[in-house]
Write a protein that binds this DNA or RNA. Structure first.
Length: 422
RNA sequence: GUGGCCGUAGCUCACCAGGUAGAGCACCGGAUUGUGGCUCCGGAGGUAGGGGGUUCGAGACCCCUCGGCCACCCCA
């Protein structure tokens, strides 16, 4: 019988990697904290309708990438493909929007896609949502927060910001039909994918990778010309905030997002280090979403970052801090010594609650125990054998540097450890 | 969903006119019967992703399948 394995595109995070996840998460959380954002935890499963209504019926995510199923009641449920919809749903449900709110979330998201580097079926996002502010100062806050995060992670030079305004829903609809008009006249010159998108999601043609299609777009009506006044003014003000703060960006007039709920400001942080899946964080404004999901009309802006992609980036640039190693490794030989060692170590843990102490288990020769001590990376080795037990002593040996090992009465152990670790 | 490349020990890889597998690292043990890091010696570890076919004989060739990578697509 063949061994069971994890589902394609859904990976285990092994001990070597989990330290890296913890590092990234800790830095992100500390920046979010410092801007006054609070964590919210939503279920992984929501009513399917939540996603089709918010992300959009005809988007790829809803049409062919969701893990949807019927529960035993016959209700259609889906594994969340993204976090914003659930966050908005929760905020409405628990009346979090009566006053402005700063929220963040993290966790796995699920999309049935072909796995590739930087893209898996269960992937993780950390996102933030800012509710109740319609002005570009709110957009700017999120971008500043992210710029600060990249600096904290050492990524400021490998990640670049692209921004755009896609206008109000009305402006977008007007532009959309103008674009469809223009492109329909050139239908045969479009690549196959873009011909399909002409029906399903015409705005996505703007960021087609096909050279001929891009050439065609040079003569197409421009989104900016259709922007409503308010969107245009807000965008100018956002750019002014960024300029004043010295946050570099490029305006990408062809940047659109794949989810229907966005309006006005959209932005992406992109890197060239990761190949095709180079978008590491993306977001935008969604002023209509709360009302659309049944809440009182409330403006919102947010972003989500891809944890695996950021991890890949930090790894590629070798920016992870050194992995934690224990401070001490404790060995013993013989029953009596095992007892003494265990008792003393537990006392040591009382005295030094934060110290990393690895107790050797499983016996073996001193030689093999010492080898394990060395490989653990510990600074100090503690050792009990027959001689030590008989004398009420313990051997303490520095593993790094050139200090000599010594034997001392057990009562002096704490003091000595203190001194050696300073 | 589409196209291409790939899948041999825990890891990185080799062998290959098709003649039933090998190295380095890691691991375990010994040289040093109470002491690591260096060195030397030895050991364990593989149904060659899985299944089927061609063949006297297949890890090598063919098909299917699973998985990985790259690009498209999609998006974080």
């Amino acid at each position: 019988m063949s061994a069971l394995r994890s589902i394609r595109g859904m990976n285990d995070v092994l001990p070597d990697d989990s330290h890296r996840w913890q590092y990234l998460e800790a830095v992100v959380v500390s920046v979010l904290d410092s801007y006054g954002y609070s964590e919210i935890r939503m279920p992984l499963v929501e009513p399917t309708a939540l996603f089709s209504r918010s992300i959009g019926e005809v988007t790829d995510i809803v049409e062919k990438e969701m893990y949807s199923f019927e529960d035993r009641n016959g209700d259609s449920l889906s594994l969340r493909p993204e976090g914003t919809a659930g966050c908005v749903r929760a905020a409405i449900q628990h009346n979090l929007l009566a006053t402005p709110a700063r929220l963040w979330y993290r966790g796995p998201m699920f999309r049935y896609e072909r796995p590739q580097k930087g893209r898996q079926r269960q992937f993780h996002q950390i996102g933030a949502e800012l509710f109740g502010y319609a002005g570009p100062d709110a957009d700017a806050e999120l971008i500043f927060l992210l710029a600060r995060l990249w600096r904290r992670l050492g990524l400021q030079n490998v990640v670049r910001l692209e921004i755009n305004s896609i206008g109000s829903l009305d402006a977008r609809a007007a532009y959309r039909s103008a674009l469809v008009n223009y492109l329909s006249a050139h239908h045969d010159e479009l690549d196959e994918d873009s011909q399909r998108r002409l029906q399903s999601n015409p705005l996505r043609i703007l960021d087609s990778k096909n050279a001929q299609t891009q050439g065609l777009l040079d003569g197409a009506p421009a989104l900016q010309e259709y922007l409503d006044d308010e969107s245009r003014e807000d965008f100018v003000r956002l750019c002014a905030y960024l300029d004043a703060a010295g946050v570099a960006y490029t305006v990408n007039p062809r940047l659109v997002r794949g989810l229907d709920y966005y309006n006005k400001t959209v932005f992406e942080w992109v890197t060239d280090e990761l190949g095709a899946q180079g978008t590491v964080c993306a977001g935008g404004r969604y002023d209509g979403l709360v009302a659309q999901l049944g809440g009182k009309a409330t403006p919102g802006v947010g972003f989500a970052m891809g944890v695996e992609r950021l991890l890949l980036l930090i790894e590629a640039l070798d920016l992870f801090p050194a992995e934690p190693v224990p401070s001490m490794y404790v060995m013993a030989m013989g029953d009596a010594a095992e007892q003494r060692a265990t008792a003393c170590v537990e006392k040591l843990r009382d005295t030094f609650p934060d110290l990393g102490i690895t107790r050797h288990l499983g016996g073996g020769s001193f030689k093999s125990q010492m080898k394990k001590a060395d490989r653990s990376g510990a600074q100090l080795a503690l050792l009990w054998g027959e001689d030590e037990v008989a004398a009420g002593e313990v051997t303490i040996k520095p593993l790094r540097g050139d200090g000599e090992q010594q034997r001392l009465p057990e009562e002096q152990l704490s003091e000595r450890v203190q001194a050696l670790l300073e």
